[in-house]
């Protein structure tokens, strides 16, 4: 019964589409590559949206097409935008320009061009995973990647997340705004003082929550519970803000269906 209902609904929709297309109210899928593209994109959008009902063959088709095409696309992009200009183009610029990229801007050797043999060697080591006997050698490349990542990110995190946060928190909580003109007197605002105090206390409480080597009991535990409240209030505000952004994406897609495809708005 359920299936029959869906078949009837789908049939009605298809009939409406055929009538609208035949009467010239909608672009025909056979009118050219643009019309075909609009129809294909619209049907794939509906196929993906059908997941809201349940898993079905249409969704499966769209999913496999999306995954396959995007995986191939990223592989090709990785080769042409990374491997060729950043490795082959550095090691053998003239040959690369001749064989792969006639538009390669710089065909002269970098002064330290031979250094690029190191990433090439690591790349080869990673590919050795394909051979059972040499698979363990790929760990060298992985160790290098993980080690350099940790080292490079250490300073970035220290300055941005640790020092930067402390620097931003350091402010007077007297609620005084300095005078604009020299010789003038500062103005007092209770509201400024209140929110500055809230900011400082909230940050201290949240820091207590992320203190791992002390048991959260007594006054410390109570203060860290304020920290959880601070986090949850922040997450609530973030949730609403992000959902608004997602609604905008949905509106954009529905606009495509109604205007570009169905031409009803």
């Amino acid at each position: 019964m359920k299936r029959a209902l869906w078949i009837i609904i789908t049939g009605i929709i298809v009939a409406v589409l055929v009538v609208r297309t035949a009467s010239g109210n909608m672009e025909s899928p056979f009118a050219g590559i643009e019309g075909f593209g609009t129809w294909f994109a619209a049907l794939l959008t509906l196929a993906i949206m059908s997941f809201l009902y349940d898993d079905n063959p249409l969704y499966r088709f769209a999913e496999h097409l999306f995954v396959g095409v995007s995986a191939a696309y990223w592989m090709v992009m990785g080769f042409w935008s990374t491997l060729v200009p950043n490795l082959l183009g550095k090691l053998w610029p003239s040959l690369t320009a001749q064989l792969f990229m006639p538009g390669l801007a710089d065909t002269t050797h970098d002064p330290l061009w031979f250094m690029y043999f190191i990433p090439m060697a690591f790349g080869v080591l990673l590919l050795l995973r394909l051979f059972p006997k040499g698979g363990h050698l790929s760990r060298w490349a992985l160790a290098f990647i993980l080690g350099t990542t940790a080292g490079l990110r250490l300073i970035a995190f220290l300055t941005a997340d640790f020092m930067g946060q402390i620097r931003s928190t350091l402010k007077s909580v007297a609620g005084l705004t300095p005078a604009v003109l020299p010789g003038g007197s500062p103005s007092f605002s209770f509201e400024t003082m209140f929110w500055d105090l809230v900011a400082v206390i909230a940050i201290m409480a949240a820091l207590c929550y992320f203190y791992f080597s002390k048991e959260h009991k007594g006054s410390f535990g109570a203060f860290s519970r304020i920290g959880i409240w601070v986090l949850m209030i922040t997450f609530g505000a973030g949730f609403g803000y992000t959902v608004m952004g997602r609604i905008a994406l949905l509106v954009g897609r529905i606009e495509f269906l109604l205007r570009d495809w169905l031409a009803v708005i």
Binding site: D54, D55, R60, E63, F66, V67, S70, A71, Y73, W74
Partner: peptide, 19 residues
Amino acid sequence: YVTDEQFGYVAGVNGYMVR
């Protein structure tokens, strides 16, 4: 590996979940 594409990856993982 599924794909580098963000929503292609999501589609693949979601499909795995429901099946």
